Amino acid sequence: MKIGVISDTHSKVGKAKKVIEFLLREGAEFFIHAGDIVEVEVLDLLEQSGKKYVAVYGNNDAHLAEYHNKYNLVQEPNYFKLSNLKFKLMHLPFYMTPDADVVISGHTHTFHSEYKGDTLFLNPGEVCARSKPISECAMLDVKEHNLIVTHFTRESKTEEFIPKVINYAR
């Protein structure tokens, strides 16, 4: 199963649209947004993707509570099952314990992927290109014996996403 993972879109709806469309072209079957959604239009884009998704509230998302029942918004930490794996989703990296197969966070605006013990820790970086002139996202490809993380980067004012593949045996 291919899972598109994004975070920290902030007010950059156009960048979020490009990333979501790109991940769809790459075969995303499910989306995870690790918070700081900021704009309801980003939730609309996830809805319009035609794929199932989950989005966690970030520290800049309190105003989105009025849309809680309209979208698949969750509070952190949120646990769920997907592709026979237990996921833990949060925005703030405060619950970084290995109590799930995959732990996804955002907030730092920095890509991080590490497989420790039996747990994958993943932060897809920032879509918004606020901390650096690069928009980032990740694809998590769940295989029977592998977890494959592809970190995609796109420099501002360019169209090309550059992949970096990390393969973890499990």
Rank of each mutant, 00 (worst) to 15 (best):
A138H: 02
S49L: 12
L120D: 01
I148C: 02
L64S: 08
P77I: 13
D44E: 15
H33Y: 10
G4L: 03
P163Y: 11
C128K: 00
E66P: 06
S49F: 09
E155P: 04
H151V: 01
S105V: 10
Y71L: 07
L89S: 03
K143Q: 14
A138W: 03
E21N: 14
V38W: 03
I162H: 07
S156V: 15
L85I: 07
R154C: 05
G125C: 04
A129E: 02
Y67E: 13
K51Q: 12
S49M: 11
A169P: 06
H91V: 07
K12T: 05
F121D: 09
Y79G: 11
F161L: 09
N72A: 13
S131E: 12
L140N: 01
G125H: 00
A55G: 15
D99N: 15
H91Q: 10
V42H: 12
K17C: 05
N60K: 07
E29W: 09
S105Y: 06
G117D: 14
S131R: 11
L45Y: 05
N69K: 14
L122S: 02
E26H: 11
G4N: 03
N123S: 13
P77K: 08
H145W: 04
P77D: 12
K18Y: 07
E114C: 09
E66W: 08
V13P: 05
T158V: 10
P163C: 11
V127H: 02
Y57H: 07
H63L: 14
Y79D: 10
T108D: 13
K132M: 05
E29Y: 07
A62C: 09
Y71A: 12
K116W: 06
K116E: 04
G27N: 12
D36H: 03
K157P: 00
C128N: 06
L46M: 11
V127I: 14
K51V: 10
S135D: 02
L147R: 02
E47A: 14
H145G: 11
T9K: 12
Y57K: 07
F121S: 10
G14F: 03
F22A: 07
E66D: 12
F121E: 01
I104R: 00
M139K: 06
M96V: 08
L23I: 13
Y168V: 04
D8G: 08
V40E: 14
V127C: 04
V149M: 05
L120I: 06
L85E: 10
V142E: 01
E76K: 13
F22Q: 10
I104S: 01
E159Q: 12
D44M: 12
V19M: 04
L82E: 02
A55V: 03
V142M: 04
R170G: 06
I37A: 06
P133F: 05
D141K: 14
L82T: 02
D99V: 11
K52Y: 09
E66V: 15
K15V: 04
A34L: 08
M1V: 10
G106E: 04
D141Q: 08
E41V: 13
H107P: 10
D101M: 06
